[in-house]
């Protein structure tokens, strides 16, 4: 029993502390910060409209819709447009500081609080994309965000690390695999999304008879960005798109975890999201999902002749 526990803990330690590539973290940081700034800028002109009592939803209504467990800083601040715009301004500053890598973990924590606060203040304008942003912000807090490409670590390059050098890397302030354990939580989160949607789709009659994407193409408010709905008029096109989507979403929860299949899974995932991005107007959802797939990337190790 003791031996089994020891092996479980050893396996967990390998999973969390020894097998992630911390060099992808700055890519996550920069991509996330850019998108979070865009989010705030889009909300800015309608701050009073969405988030004050003189707008479309009163604070009391938001609380009734979400129940007693919800919280938001905006519940307690004065319900005035200038207050909301001030909060958005701080949010944008947090995003900008994260973008350049200035105490990014603190910025991530602040962004998480803002995201929860704004999403809970008006749940009617938010959707799954906002949930992904919120969870990612929370996970960012635990990543070594400023280890590379940040104003706090200027000149730091993405060089390979060997486990035997971990101690030395730490001593010079560099990042090692053990610091990037929260990447595993990103990976679990992404897997859960794909598995959940695949399981839900497997129950749907239109996903089983190959017509689901035809129906999606008739969602004319969202569909038809650069791919016309008429492209899916041919039954084989609709079936290909439907079964292709279903196959990729069923494959990703497994493929992303199998080292030999990981790159294939990441490429298929990116293709899926780009396909949706080109055909539908869903704001930043596809881009934040692509960002999440980057958490699975292991960059190739470069051989340095001078080491």
């Amino acid at each position: 029993m003791k031996g089994l526990m020891h092996r479980i803990v050893r396996g967990l330690d390998w999973f969390l502390f020894e097998s992630c590539d911390p060099r992808v973290v700055p890519i996550l940081r920069i991509g996330f910060a850019l998108m979070i700034i865009i989010q705030a800028l889009v909300l800015w002109p309608d701050a009073g409209y969405w988030f004050t009592d003189s707008g479309v939803m009163r604070t009391q209504t938001a609380r009734e819709i979400l129940g007693p467990g919800s919280w938001s800083l905006l519940y307690y601040l004065p319900s005035e447009p200038w207050v909301v715009q001030s909060a958005l301004a701080i949010w944008i500053v947090n995003g900008a500081l994260m973008l350049v890598g200035f105490y990014s973990r603190v910025q991530a924590a602040a962004i998480f609080v803002w995201l929860v606060s704004f999403q809970n203040r008006n749940p009617s304008i938010h959707d799954g994309e906002d949930t992904v942003f919120r969870i990612f912000a929370f996970l960012m807090v635990w990543l070594p965000l400023d280890a590379y490409w940040s104003i706090r670590k200027r000149g730091e390059s993405l060089e390979p690390r060997q486990d035997s050098k971990n101690r030395a890397d730490r001593s010079v302030g560099r990042c090692v695999a053990a610091d990037a354990w929260a990447l595993r939580l990103f990976q679990v989160q992404m897997t859960a999304i794909y598995a959940s949607t695949a399981l839900s789709k497997l129950e749907g009659s239109t996903w089983n008879d190959g017509t689901a994407v035809w129906y999606v193409s008739r969602m004319t408010d969202n569909f038809g960005r650069w791919i016309s709905a008429s492209w899916l008029d041919q039954p084989y096109a609709s079936e290909l798109a439907t079964y292709g989507t279903l196959a990729i979403e069923c494959f990703l929860p497994f493929g992303l975890w199998i080292p030999r299949l990981r790159w294939l899974a990441i490429c298929l995932g990116v293709l899926l999201h780009l396909g949706i991005e080109f055909s539908m107007n869903l704001f930043l959802f596809q881009w934040v999902m692509i960002l999440g797939l980057i958490a699975f990337v292991k960059l190739p190790t470069r051989v340095c002749s001078n080491t």
Binding site: G128, I193, S196, T197, K201, S205, T206, Y215, V216, M219
Partner: peptide, 9 residues
């Protein structure tokens, strides 16, 4: 859960 266009659009 994540019912993205599921179980049916």
């Amino acid at each position: 859960d994540w019912p993205l266009f599921a179980p049916n659009p």
